[in-house]
Design a protein around this nucleic acid. Structure first.
Lengths: 205, 205, 205, 205
DNA sequence: CATGAATGAGAATTCATTCAT
DNA sequence: TATGAATGAATTCTCATTCAT
């Protein structure tokens, strides 16, 4: 009857919204975007499929939010590394290693984040946030150049290579035929290797 | 007396087959696997949809052939570089630069080749050929280790990084909104940068 | 507060389900399983084709339900005769006569029930229920043997013959060109004849 | 060049025709009408699919000819029994037993002959030839009535029952789940049982 | 006459989105 | 606001039949 949204209701809406996103994220983590049907998402979120359309314009908007949110999380992690006291070289190493280690725990999501094709609306937004990761890496490079640790000419391309390497290495083991399970120790070793590779590629010799 | 498959007919069939594959390749190049419907492929090839099934078991087989063929072409290029007289370092540089330069001419196809999800039959075959590219890079590394140019511990991971870098750099500019067109000169510059990155990452310091 | 499946909606759903089954039954009765396409069934039921899949797993399930339901109805009729106070001979007579009389009112359905080929899922279920009819006849035979009315050696084969006779006689007049219409009187006469035949075949002489 | 069909050519045509029919019969025997595609028939007959349309108006005509021919063969067998010196009772017994025994050797064909639905053209013709079998049985009944062996009122209905029994018993074991294999001895026993049933049903008591 | 490549009308099924309740 | 039943466009694959060679 009341036209004002009671704070109770606002809270409930907030919960629904989160439940939907969280459900979508879970489904994508497990089976990729292809498994993320509105019906399935709603079911797992404990709401009706129709309700999804009250919180999101359409399916693409749900995906956009999930993907951006997830990349943003990674971004925060990387940025906190950038803010730290380490040397540029150490920052790069840690950023790459951390990204890889984290991604290995949810490779399907990582794949969907970076590569799985979606309609162009989603694609566009995703591109935007992927750029942010690249920017963070560039930031590290700029610092390193300034401190004399690196002598990089084309920061952008170098950053692209790093992002490419650190994402692909996670995605490649996704082959259904292999279905490799890394133990924690191997994840550590593996992520260090990638980080070494990236650092070697850019440091002053 | 015999009307069996005149060479004229054989030729026409060959043409049809090629037309179908070529049509599929074109469509994938432009809009990705998601746009490659049998109907569309057939139309653009100038044949009926039913005819596609005379040449290919099912849709997956069409895709498999397009994708593998394309990757194999790249493979041949890389392998011819490996067979050459260059030093390992030079080989790596040329292989990466060539791959990138070529891929920039058909980035959407490159994307589909490397990342776009497809049904598991296709996925499986694609994985196989993607591995071959990695193997070729590993081969260069092994040579370089032998000659003392490189001192690589984990050839496989390093190769993964290189493949990741060289494929991602092509895919990333794929922002549908930007639709960047590199001119030839920029392509050259760009691909050289990537190659430098990769060589620097692995060479002995 | 809860909008969950109001009883009104429940009722409507029940109606839809029935409408679909009833539409399918009607179509099969008129043209056999071969005419029962999802599209046609849905149209005649006044719903969309997609809705059919909300109520039934797939087309086979629709057919299974129609066919089993119809056979089960016959089964109930026969079984109620078996439960009655009649002598075995009278039971057999009545069971056969009743089956034939009823089937003559929907011969195409009877045909589809008994003979029209369907995919193996349907086939399997149908076989099961056809067996039940045979079992009911066998039951009568066992009773008759016990009471000394019959002296049957191989109950199963005899039951097969009875089922064969009583189903075939209905199916045979199905000549599409003739499209014979029996009047009620003739149906009575005809079904009595079949029943006589079956009783004569098995009773002690 | 010659407008007269050389006898050589006539012979070849005859051979092709026979090959097509024979191939169709084989396929139907093995998998039923549903497996009898023009392509498959032609292939197995060693001719092109197009050629089938030179000998037959359309697919239905091929089926019609196969089915009629097969039923006619059975008819000849039954008629030779009718022509023999046996008593009516013996004739009936032998006719039924023979039919069942023969059909058990090719149950899928028997099924297709008697029941598998086909388009209405085929249906119509098939009806016609199935009637002929019934007529033959009626003929035996007429003889038996004349000789006093039987006292049948409605020959037609009785014949229907016999045809129904003797066809159904063959068809029923076709259940793919059972896939019963009768040995020769069991076939003999089984067919005798059916024949006994039919004789008992009609003989004077 | 003989071939078999080519056609294209179907038919089953899926799923984002809408809307009456 | 919340529900979930209902819609229907879209897509793959099949197979009788035709027709250029």
């Amino acid at each position: 009857m009341s036209y004002k949204r009671s704070s109770l209701m606002q809270e409930r809406m907030e919960q629904n919204r989160k439940a939907i996103l969280s459900s979508a994220r879970k489904i994508i983590s497990e089976g990729g975007v292809k498994d993320a049907q509105i019906q399935t998402i709603a079911e797992q979120a404990g709401v009706s499929s129709g309700l999804v359309y009250r919180y999101f314009e359409n399916k693409s908007q749900v995906l956009i939010e999930v993907l951006s949110e997830a990349i943003h999380t990674e971004l925060l992690v990387i940025d906190s590394i950038i803010e730290s006291d380490l040397s540029a070289k150490q920052k790069l190493h840690k950023a790459v290693a951390t990204f890889v280690k984290r991604a290995l725990n949810s490779p399907q999501l990582a794949y969907s984040l970076m590569f799985e094709p979606v309609d162009s609306t989603v694609e566009h937004e995703r591109f935007r946030v992927k750029q942010l990761i690249k920017q963070s890496i560039k930031k590290i490079f700029a610092d390193g150049n300034a401190s004399g640790e690196f002598v990089l000419d084309d920061l952008n391309t170098a950053a692209l290579c790093v992002v490419g390497a650190m994402t692909y290495v996670v995605v490649e083991p996704l082959d259904p035929a292999q279905n490799i399970k890394f133990d924690q120790q191997h994840k550590n070793y593996f992520s260090r290797q990638i980080a070494d590779f990236c650092v070697d590629a850019v440091q002053k010799k």
